[in-house]
Design a protein around this nucleic acid. Sequence first.
DNA 1: CCTCCACAGGAAGCGCAGGAGT
DNA 2: ACTCCTGCGCTTCCTGTGGAGG
Length: 397
Amino acid sequence: MPSFEDVLKEQKSVFSNKGALSPHFVPDELPYRENEIRKLMVCLAPALSGQKAKNVFLYGKTGTGKSSSTRTVIKKLEDEKNERVKVIYMNCRVYDSRYKVLQKVITAFHPSFAKTGYSFAVLYERLLDWLEKDGKQLVVALDEVDMVKDLDNLVYTLTRANDDLTNGGIAIIGISNKVDFKQRLDARSRSSLCEEEMVFQPYNAEQLKGILSKRSEIAFQDTAVQESAINLAAAVAASENGDARYALLLLLRAGELSDAEKLDNVTDVQVEKSRKSAEEDKAFEIISTLPEHQQLLLYSIATLASEVAYKRLVEEGGEKLYFSGEVYERYAAVAKKLGKEPRTSRWYREYLKELEALGLINTVQSGKGIRGHTTLIRLSYEPQRVKQVIETKVLGE
DNA sequence: CCTCCACAGGAAGCGCAGGAGT
DNA sequence: ACTCCTGCGCTTCCTGTGGAGG
C-alpha cells in the first residue's frame, strides 16, 4: 500500500511552490512599484496617529500591480499592530452593493452579523458604534469598485459616516481598471472617492522579466526555468498591455506542460505552447459570445475546411483558402438547414470584416490566376476545434 | 479591346428598441 | 403616459474594379 508521501515523490515537478505564480500571491517585495507603495503609505499613515486616512483611487490596466500594491501596504499596516486601525479588503465582484459591502465590514468585527436580514440602518448604527468606541480608523479597500451597483450611495454613506462620528473615521481605497468609470459617478462621490489619485502604468518587457525572475525563484525548482522561457513570457506579455498577471499565467501553464510531459525544465517551447493555448481560449471565448449569424458563418467555414476535397479552393503554403462566394452559399445552406433565414450577401461581407477584425479569420484579395475579383478566406484556428466549440457551446445547447 | 465574371462596398431606406423630452 | 428622435442591424439597389476569356 503506497502512502501519499510515496505518490508525491513519484510525481516529480518543476515547481517548488506553484502558488507563487497565482494572481492571489502577495510577494514580500513588489519590484518597480516602490513609488506607488510609498505614496499609498503616505495616504494611509494618518490612521496610525488617529487621523482619518485619505481616500485614494487607484486606476490602471489589469496586471499592473494595483491589487498587489494595495495588499502589500495593507499587510504593512497590519504589521504595525495598532489596535485602533482596521483594514478590510474586499473584491466588489463579490460584494457588489452598499449593503453587502457594509455587511462584510461589520462581520470583520462582529461575526454574528454574517447573515442577512438586518436592516441597513441597524448595520450602519453598529458600524458607527464600533468605530466610535475607541476612535478607530477604518480603511476599506474596494477592489474592482466599478462593479458596485449603487456606488454613489456607498461612497456617500461611507463619507457621511465621518460627519456622524465624533471619534474615529473611515477611508476608502478604490481600485478599478475601467477608464470611463469615473465619468459615471456623480460629481460629489467622485470628488470624495478621488481625493487622491494614482495611475498604474503597464510594465515594460524589462520589468516583466524582473518580476518573472523573482517569482520563478520561489515558484520553481532551482534550475528548472530557462532564461529564454522567462524572456519569451515577458516579451509576449509586454506586447499584450504589459499585463504581469498574464505573464505569470504563461509561466504557470508552461510549467504544468513540462510536468505533464515529464520534463525536468521549462523552456521557451512550453511558453510558446501555453501562449497558443491561452490565445485559443480567448478566441473560443469570443466565439461563444458572437452574434448567432456570425457563429453560423464561422461554422460554415469550419465545415468547408473539414471536407477533404472541396470543389473550389486555392492552396497557399499548404493552407486552404475558400472563395467568398462559396462560403456564402455554404452559410446560406447551413442557416436554412437550421431553420434560420440567412442574411443577405451584402451583410455577409460586413460579417467577414468583423470576424477578420476579431482575428478569427484571415482574408486575402484574389490576385492573378483567379477569374474576377473575390476574397479568399481561411480560419485562423484549427477548423476541427472551431467546429467542435460551436457545435457544443452554441448549437448543442 | 471589349465583355463578362465575381464580387466589393457606398447610399438610401426600413423596422425596431430604447432613451429624451413634454 | 405619450410622442419624438436617434442609433442599430439589416435589406435593396447600385456602381466600381481587376483580371479572364473570346
